[in-house]
Nucleic acid binder design. Structure first.
Length: 315
DNA sequence: TTGTGTTTTATTGCCTCC
DNA sequence: GGAGGCAATAAAACACAA
């Protein structure tokens, strides 16, 4: 952008005026850089102070006036080995400013900058090339940090949600267990009272009145949750014996106490019973609407045993 | 002083555009 | 086909700890 070069022209002028101009390069520079009176140094800027640690005091530009040449410097220059030389601080600062204005270099601007800085256009082009590369690298680092921060925020939110979900699942399981337990107890008390013909009172029935049982709220589940397949309690399901189920109805669990003692049955009867048990094993009868939390085709509290996320220990 | 890692300058090769 | 840009790389210059 030509405007960039002109925009900073005054700054350049100031810098130029503040430079202590060293003896100019030999006339060789003219051969190397065409009509430019600036040192070309075979693609290298060779006006660097030979002494280390003195970069800030190094001259910015070569003298434009060949008449100011010093013979000693000429000799030194010619005997300098071909080395890669760094640009002076002032040159770099100027290039930086120019880069801030526009990071692409049009031919006119390149020529102008080269002229102003006493560099070869090629050097200016190379500097811009490398500067663009550095800028790109920094930009990538910034983008990465931004993405990283975004990721961390999302992950934190996700972890919080997962924890909340697991807590809710645990609560649901706990409540379900309690309800199943109560169902079993009621069934037990009913059968006991029938068999005993009122000879004795069921302690459970004593502790939980019929009214109380009937007042147990029937959970209702949102449609979307209820649409989740109900294989958790499906006797046909291969998950029948899985951990979720066994955690609810383990051996020793009160539900086992209701398995009928069929030792007196015939083999056919046993077979039939076994088949029927396959579909009802360990489950209390749920005809009672009080406990109809697992109606046919209903949901299983949104749990899907095949979902790895269902199992808390899968994390 | 020296070894080592980083930064800067420059080259090379490939690609795209006009 | 030449000019210019970019990625990869080399190599000099530089910084710094031991």
């Amino acid at each position: 952008m030509a405007g960039g070069a002109s925009a900073s022209a005054s700054a350049i002028t100031t810098l130029l005026q503040n430079q202590r101009v060293p003896p100019p390069p030999p006339s060789d520079a003219f051969f190397l850089s065409g009509s430019s009176p600036f040192l070309g140094s075979r693609a290298m800027v060779s006006f660097e102070d030979a002494h280390r640690g003195n970069r800030l005091n190094r001259p910015f530009f070569r003298s434009i006036d060949p008449d100011e040449n010093g013979e000693d410097d000429l000799e030194d220059y010619f005997h300098q080995p071909e080395k890669k030389r760094r640009l002076t601080v002032e040159q770099v600062q100027f290039l930086e400013k120019s880069f801030e204005v526009e990071n692409k270099l049009e031919p006119d601007r390149k020529i102008q900058l080269a002229k102003d800085l006493g560099l070869q256009p090629r050097q200016v082009a190379i500097w811009f090339q490398n500067r663009r590369a550095r800028w790109k690298t920094k930009q990538l680092e910034k983008d990465y940090e931004t993405l990283q921060a975004s990721f961390n925020t999302l992950k934190s939110d996700y972890d919080t949600l997962i924890k909340e979900r697991n807590d809710l699942k645990a609560e649901v399981l706990n409540l379900t267990d309690k309800l199943l337990h109560k169902g079993n107890e009621k069934e037990s008390s009913e059968s006991s009272s029938k068999s005993s013909q009122g000879l004795f009172q069921n302690p459970i029935a004593d502790s939980v009145s019929e009214d109380e049982v009937s007042r147990v709220p029937i959970p209702t589940w949102p449609e979307d949750i209820c649409s989740v397949k109900s294989d958790m309690f499906d006797s046909e399901s291969p998950h029948y014996t899985d951990a979720a189920h066994s955690s609810l109805l383990e051996p020793g669990d009160s539900s086992y106490a209701f398995e009928p003692d069929h030792s007196d049955l015939s083999q056919d009867e046993e077979d039939n019973l076994s088949k029927s048990l396959l579909s009802t094993r360990n489950y209390p009868k749920l005809e009672n609407s009080d406990y109809a939390i697992l109606p046919p085709n209903s949901c299983n509290f949104g749990f899907h045993a095949e979902d790895p996320a269902f199992w808390p220990w899968s994390y």
